[in-house]
């Protein structure tokens, strides 16, 4: 390695007495977008790996529960239609959650990588919002690819053009909810506890989210119905089910949107508080 020998000559013209020039009118919004662009570039570079990662679990769930059990006669013929919207919800929420929780744990404690973004000219809370928005994008993609996979494995999926927009909005809400939960996990859980916490949180989250059955059908197991009602994912599953298979009993769709939105606000506030606490001492 050779050391450049002329000191001042090698220095770029802008390194010198302070001149803020091009940076002065730069808004936090644009900084946030630049950070988002970085995240998209990094994920885009390994998009196939990302897809494989998010598709595998729902793919197997769809295949075993939707196809194998039905063909073997253990599940009723209509079960596929009940299951599919729930698995879309599961993909959105889980992918959103994993896309914030793990990176945050790593960036805050091991790699310190997040520092460069915390030192960028935007409010600390905006860094958290960017993380959530980006994670929700991943969640949305994971949920969206369930549709072609569903067609491929099940032959057909429940689908109505008239509710397509509402379905998309619910998928966005679900992804954001997952990302907000991940923000909380990633900022409140100490790094040495993250494995345990994941095991203790993810499994109940997956199995109380009403993704494999309609929530109203839990009437007979009242306590489980109550527990499931506390899980934000329930409202995403039920909302999507109501929009895609209206004939199946479901929680009123408007109520699903309202509860999911309220949950989102609450989880974001808690998560942002935790993020601020970690980011500033």
């Amino acid at each position: 390695m050779s050391a450049p020998s002329e000191p001042a000559a090698g220095v770029p013209q802008s390194v010198g007495p302070p001149t803020v020039g091009p940076v002065a009118h730069w808004g936090p919004w644009r900084t946030g977008l630049a950070i988002l662009r970085r995240d998209l570039m990094v994920t885009g570079r390994e998009f196939p790996i990302f897809l494989a990662q998010v598709i595998l679990q729902p793919l197997f769930l769809l295949f075993v529960f939707g196809k194998v059990l039905t063909e073997l006669g253990y599940a009723q013929p209509g079960y596929q239609e009940v299951l599919f919207p729930g698995l879309v919800a599961l993909a959105a929420v889980l992918t959103g959650l994993q896309s914030t929780a793990l990176p945050l744990v790593i960036e805050f404690s091991y790699s310190n990588e997040i520092e460069d973004r915390l030192l960028a000219p935007l409010p600390v809370g905006a860094v958290a919002v960017e993380k959530v928005v980006f994670a929700a994008m991943r969640g949305f993609v994971a949920a969206a690819v369930m549709f072609p996979i569903g067609v491929w494995i099940l032959g057909s999926i429940p689908w109505q053009a008239s509710t397509a927009v509402a379905v998309a909005v619910m998928m966005v809400l679900g992804s954001l909810l997952g990302a907000a939960m991940g923000l909380i996990l990633g900022t409140y859980v100490p790094p040495n506890r993250i494995n345990v916490t994941f095991a203790l949180v993810l499994t109940p989250l997956i199995f109380t989210g009403s993704s494999q059955y309609p929530w109203p059908s839990l009437d007979h197991i009242r306590w489980f119905q109550v527990v499931s009602a506390l899980n934000p994912m329930t409202y995403v599953s039920e909302g999507l089910r109501g929009l895609m298979v209206p004939s199946v009993p479901h929680i009123a769709t408007w109520a699903c949107f309202v509860v999911a939105a309220v949950y989102l606000v609450v989880l974001m506030l808690v998560g942002m508080y935790g993020f601020n606490r970690r980011a500033l001492s």
């Binding site: 790699s111 460069d116 973004r117």
Partner: peptide, 21 residues
């Protein structure tokens, strides 16, 4: 605290993009 997902040059360039250069 360098960005491990980015190359050396990208570390510099993305940092500048956060600052609106």
């Amino acid at each position: 605290n360098l960005d491990r997902s980015l190359s050396v040059r990208q570390n510099l360039i993305y940092h500048a993009s956060y600052h609106g250069v």
